[in-house]
Nucleic acid binder design. Structure first.
Lengths: 230, 230
DNA sequence: TTTTATATTTTGAGTAATCAAAGTATTATT
DNA sequence: AATAATACTTTGATTACTCAAAATATAAAA
């Protein structure tokens, strides 16, 4: 069994290397994600590599093996199911759920996890819209585009928010920019690098392109449709 | 903040020293309860004593200070609320809940604990009938007598079971000897050291005096009433 | 009382994880 | 190409916990 420290390294590594094909995660980056010094990360990664969960290339970086990815996905499953459980069943604040789950994910048993999964009705996404890996370690990740890619007049539905910080989540919640919310793009201003989005039944919200890119939406088709009309 | 190791030492110490006035818990006993060697316990206890949570008397034993008791009661509160939560909300087996709670009690936050407490309606006892300390660290422990003290013909209600092992709990459950169950004492045989108890709507169960003593009952008055009639 | 048994403490060593700081590559700048 | 900046690795030390085995004290038996 992997220690909770190693589980954390694997999880961060997975999140960082996902969507990159064969690219190595640099040590400094991993160290920052885990919250340790670079020296500590180097030592730890060498141990992880020795146990076959990652490949380590000195001065280049580290990348999970298939076995490492599988283990990481099991941690991620625990994390995301717990987040949903904390929000849905216990009524914990959306913005706090992440930090709470961070602790619990390492001690919850398979039995308890199975009951939580059952109680939630085998959900496919967590409160942020992040997909929950199956118990077999499979992840269904539909391709989504972001608010930043849409055009004036487009209407869409928020599917996922890719920032776990409680400050950002509190802002998103108070603006009405939450998963499943319908949103209309009121203005886009590429020069200023900002857009204005109006959630259904709420006030319009100004978003920088960086912020807008954190909201993934569905359907994407609206973008293409709009472009054709131009 | 106390580490989870120290939390465990404090909890076991509390359970062991309760109901004894000023008596010191021997090292060997504590070591066995925590599951470490006697040498380890000695080292650890000295550290705990240095931080003011216990008094340590070499070759005599150890005893919690008031501060240590308070901390232990907070751990116990987390443990017992979690046990009830696991059984009531998640549907975890009675006999497994103890082991699960043992892990969770050290990582659950005050926020999550408060939500669990609320969801359960501020309960006063856990699934075994053990009282749950208040958030202020107060414990209400009504005096109960055991099945072993009753006499033939007495009727009573099981209030508490003082054995956390899953084997014993499975036996109790299958016999119908669970908290809140009404029980009639059918036979007592002091010579053989055994009694026969019949839970309402179930078959009578043979119990050794040792086993019978693990079932605490209410009301106790039945005993006195019976004695007077003799 | 002397011996034996039992409980406890001490000692020395090991594991897992960490950091600070010194040393070494690699990349970028002049 | 030489220098400076950056990223990474190594080293030595530290903390928290643990065990096995040797040393010591206390209690029980002879």
């Amino acid at each position: 069994m992997a220690s909770r420290t190693i589980e954390n390294y694997l999880k961060q590594l997975w999140l960082e290397q996902q969507d990159t094909r064969g690219k190595y995660v640099p040590m400094g980056k991993l160290a920052a994600l885990v919250g340790v010094t670079a020296g500590t990360a180097t030592t730890m990664v060498k141990a992880i590599a020795d146990s076959g969960l990652a490949k380590y290339a000195p001065r280049a970086g580290v990348r999970l093996t298939r076995a490492g990815e599988q283990l990481a996905l099991h941690v991620l499953r625990r994390h995301r199911l717990l987040e949903l459980f904390l929000v849905e069943i216990l009524g914990i604040d959306w913005s706090d759920a992440h930090a709470e789950a961070e602790e619990l994910e390492h001690v919850i048993s398979e039995t308890v996890l199975a009951r939580i999964d059952l109680l939630l009705g085998h959900p496919s996404v967590d409160p942020h819209g992040d997909p929950i890996p199956s118990s077999a370690g499979k992840l269904e990740a539909p391709k989504l585009c972001s608010l930043a890619e849409l055009h004036t007049g487009n209407t869409t539905i928020i599917a996922r928010i890719v920032d776990q910080s409680s400050e950002f989540l509190r802002f998103a919640q108070s603006s009405g920019l939450v998963p499943k919310a319908q949103v209309v793009i009121e203005h886009t201003n590429p020069q200023a690098g900002a857009i204005s989005a109006r959630p259904d039944g709420k006030e319009p919200v100004m978003l920088s392109m960086v912020a807008a890119a954190k909201f993934l939406v569905r359907p994407c088709a609206a973008t293409r449709g709009k472009r054709r009309n131009k």
